[in-house]
Each structure stands twice: as C-alpha cells, then as structure tokens.
Computed example of a mutant assay.
Amino acid sequence: MSDATIGFIGLGNMGGRMARCLVDAGTPVLGFDPNVEAVRAAGAGVAPSIAEVTQRCDIVLMSLPDSNVVEKVVEGDDGVLAYAWDGQIVVDLSTASVSSTRRLAMRMAEKGTDYVDAGISGGAAAAEKGALTLMVGGDKTALKRLEPVFAPIASKVVLMGGSGAGHTTKLLNNFLNAVSLAATAEVMVAGKKADLDLHQLLDVLNASSGVNFATLNRFPKIVDGDYLEGGLTSQLMTKDVVLYADLLHELGVTSLNTAGPMASFGLASALGYGEMISNRVVDAIGDVSGGVRLHQS
C-alpha cells in the first residue's frame, strides 16, 4: 500500500534541507533517520523504520554518506529491497560507487522497482533554496514521474544516461571541485605569506585564467573568516576523490591529478578538520606553512 507521501531516508546535512524544501512546497514527507530530531526539524513525519517508509511511499528518496551506508539501508535486514515493490521508484541522492549503484539497480529491477541515481551539486546553500543541480541516471519514464518531486529541490535536472550515469557525472564534478578547492587554498596561503591583499588577489584571479568556483564563491567569504559552514566535510571530500580514482581505474583512464587533493584533504583530516567543512583545508595548509590564517581572528 502506498500513499501520496514522499519517503525520505537520511535527513542529515543535505537530506534535511531537501526534505524541508519539499515540505515547504506542500509535499507531505515521511522521513527516517537515526536522529529523530533531524526528521522533525525538516517538518517531515517521523517513520519508525526504513520498512515503514518503503511500504507506504511509492517514491523514496535517500541521502546517505557513502555506498557502505547505502548498501546497508537497501540490502540490510528490513531494508528497502526487502519491501520494495513493482512500480515503486527509489532515488539515491548520495555520492556513491558507480558499480555499487548499478548492482543495486539490477536487484531492484528484479522486483519491478526503478532505482534512480541522482547526484546533487550546489552545496548546503543551494539545498536550502531548492536550487540544486541534479545529474540523473536511470529510466526516462521514471524521471518524468519524478519531475514534481525534483521541482522544489532543484533548478536544473539533467538525465545523463542509464543506471550509474548520474553518479558517474557526480564523481567527475566532485573531483574538479576538490582540485580547485585544494589548489586555491594553497595559492591563498602563498598570497598571504607574500603579503598580498587577498581581496585584490581574488579580484585579479577572477578576471584571469585562474578563475574557478572556489575563487568566485568560496574564498571571497573565507578571507573574511566565513567558512560557509554546513557543506561537504574533508572526510567526505577524501571519500569522493577515492571513488573517482576507483572509477577511472574501472574505465581504464590514467589519473595523474588525484594526488594533490588526496594529500590536501587527507592532511586536513589528520590535523583535526575532517568533520569540518572542506573549506577548512586552507587552515590545514596554513598550519603546516607556519601557522597562517587568511583572516584576523
């Protein structure tokens, strides 16, 4: 049995914001998260179990930390797969292993369930405004049914191909994000030690060939002490770079550029910034460069 309620499993940093956008748009949401208060904060109804969400909702969204958690939620005892049914759609909004995603999609298909991978981009700020970009892998007919569900949470939705195409695109995007953030952090620490005015440095970079998302959107805030808290952590960024490297190995593509971001975000985790927003990588680089901070405390 299903009702018109959208199911949502995993109402953490991003999931909670997306669920809130759905609720604010007038869509009833039934949520499950180990942190019950996170479900309530999003305005969703509280489900006692994953099974309850799966049994009641013909569309179930999941926003989870990694493939290990996704697999436990889907394939574990009383998980989504045990209660999935013909005609249901399950959407994985996580950043996950492409091979794992395709395997789960095949298992879901055996029950007549569409398993759609939908990588998200835009960070916490876009999630709060319902302005995410969704890169989707799966069936075109399923995506058509998902349009009214995605409308309150995303300003751009692109079907990239079949199963796994959404998560493939997300890993490619996140790798470029990791490279630009880590490299720009290093440059800004160097600029600080060279006694450059950091606002002027950013102004020049943003009018020159070194411009990137970090110079445009992150560091104009960071140099004034605003780290834009609430986004992807350094530990999760490291996880995404590892998934990217695994993907390239599977594709037979030589990866010559993973070492930089791997070292940078690994350093951040080793120095105690792992659970903080990945923008704190600039402090980690500053720590090993003589205790540099871009801003005055």
Rank of each mutant, 00 (worst) to 15 (best):
D58R: 15
K156P: 02
Y273F: 15
G286H: 00
P48W: 00
H199M: 00
A263M: 14
S208H: 00
N35P: 02
D139G: 10
A118S: 14
G16W: 03
D114T: 04
N177V: 13
G7V: 07
S67H: 08
M276C: 01
S289E: 07
C57G: 06
T169S: 06
A259N: 04
D246K: 15
D78E: 14
T238Q: 09
R102V: 04
M108I: 01
E75Q: 08
V158W: 09
K192H: 01
A4E: 15
G272S: 11
L22V: 13
L236R: 11
V53L: 11
S269W: 04
K170T: 05
V39Y: 13
P34I: 13
L143I: 01
S278H: 10
L198F: 00
D240V: 10
E275L: 04
F219H: 11
T258K: 03
D224I: 00
A42P: 07
T54A: 13
V69H: 10
A4I: 06
L228V: 10
I285K: 08
L81H: 11
V46P: 12
V189A: 02
V136P: 11
V288P: 09
G291Y: 03
L176W: 14
K192A: 10
T141N: 13
Y83F: 13
I277K: 03
T95A: 00
L159R: 09
D287Q: 13
K72S: 15
D224A: 14
G10N: 08
L243Q: 10
V157I: 13
I9L: 15
D224P: 04
L205I: 07
F8K: 06
A47E: 08
V98K: 04
Q235V: 09
N173H: 15
W85D: 08
H199K: 00
A4R: 01
N68Q: 07
D77G: 07
G12D: 12
